[in-house]
């Protein structure tokens, strides 16, 4: 009888867990619509900046630290975008795994990576292991606003523009999760700085990039700038000032874009994880119910056989 009680209480607790998972799943799916809207809202600005940078690249030979390789320091910055909350399946752990791979790759190339982490889960992971982190940001990882993008890009730009002896970095890598669709989210490594500017006309895939993972810029310009030859702009007050103003904004909007796609991925992966958890809880309940029935049946059979056995014994004694 005792085990029946145990089964019943396990079924009850699994049932309430299932309800929680189910609720989480529904919350996540309602957030996805929001995340999509935020991403769509930010798109026109991103496009405008991208077009402007294209225009700049098309008819000026850009001389700006942002586009130039610097070799004066082995330090490079790595920004990992993780989530604030758990219950998102392998979201954060795959980012961390990819980040670790990247870090050791950079190490073996003789570079000194500095880690920047966004998202509470990633921060706790590295803090717990007493790893050195250059800077961290937390909050709103499932719906990042412009403010957080501004903060992150300002900090990273500061590190990038700083001279070598003051902690400057020569490159910036971003590890983030790309939202392919509801089911597929892919972890990607993007080298964001120095910017690879390719004039719209020669955007063929022949640049000597490390790998196709870094070819985002080229991929983008193919679709946005393909048809018309870009007009001859006049720049006011001067090309340099326009560059100074626009390139940091470009970086900021790229980072914002990464944050947004990462947020969408986080939500989608949370929905998937919660869906699986709900299914598992249901299976578990089914299994437990079956076991409960079995044990009840066994108990009944045993009782019966005891009664019959004792009745038989009485009968034989009377004879």
């Amino acid at each position: 009888m005792g085990s029946q009680l145990a089964f019943k209480s396990r079924i009850a607790s699994t049932g309430s867990l299932e309800k929680i998972f189910n609720a989480q799943e529904m919350i996540a799916s309602s957030h996805i619509a929001k995340a999509r809207k935020v991403a769509l809202d930010a798109k026109p600005y991103t496009d405008a900046i991208f077009d402007a940078v294209q225009a700049l690249a098309a008819h000026t030979h850009i001389k700006h630290p942002i586009v130039e390789k610097r070799d004066d320091t082995p330090r490079v910055a790595v920004l990992a975008l993780t989530s604030d909350r758990g219950m998102a399946g392998a979201f954060t752990s795959s980012i961390i795994r990819e980040t670790e791979t990247l870090l050791s790759n950079l190490d073996s190339q003789g570079k000194k990576p500095e880690l920047f982490v966004y998202g509470r889960r990633g921060v706790t992971y590295y803090k717990y292991r007493n790893r050195e982190i250059a800077d961290t940001w937390e909050g709103d990882s499932d719906q990042p606003g412009v403010e957080i993008a501004e903060k992150i890009s300002a900090e990273l730009m500061k590190a990038y523009m700083a001279p070598a002896d003051k902690g400057g970095v020569s490159e910036l890598y971003v590890v983030f999760t790309e939202f392919v669709n509801m089911v597929v989210q892919r972890v990607r490594v993007l080298r964001m700085l120095p910017v690879e500017l390719i004039a719209a006309s020669d955007s063929a895939n022949d640049e000597d990039l490390l790998s196709d993972e870094h070819g985002d810029l080229q991929k983008n310009d193919g679709k946005s700038e393909a048809p018309s030859a870009s007009p001859l702009y006049s720049f006011e007050p001067s090309v340099d000032e326009v560059l100074d103003a626009i390139l940091p904004k470009y970086i900021q909007s790229r980072i914002h874009e990464c944050l947004l796609t990462s947020a969408a991925s986080e939500t989608a992966s949370r929905q998937n994880a919660m869906h699986t958890a709900t299914d598992n809880a249901r299976n578990l309940i089914d299994d437990l119910t079956r076991q409960l029935n079995q044990s009840r049946q066994a108990a009944i059979t045993q009782e019966l056989s005891e009664i019959i056995g004792s009745a038989d014994a009485l009968n034989t004694e009377e004879e």
């Binding site: 006049s234 720049f235 006011e236 007050p237 326009v242 103003a245 626009i246």
Partner: peptide, 19 residues
């Protein structure tokens, strides 16, 4: 509000990029 003072833009202006 261009960086060097107000600037008016009419249709068919020449291509311009201004902070």
């Amino acid at each position: 509000p261009a960086s060097e003072g107000g600037m008016g833009i009419l249709p068919n202006h020449e291509p311009v990029l201004t902070v």
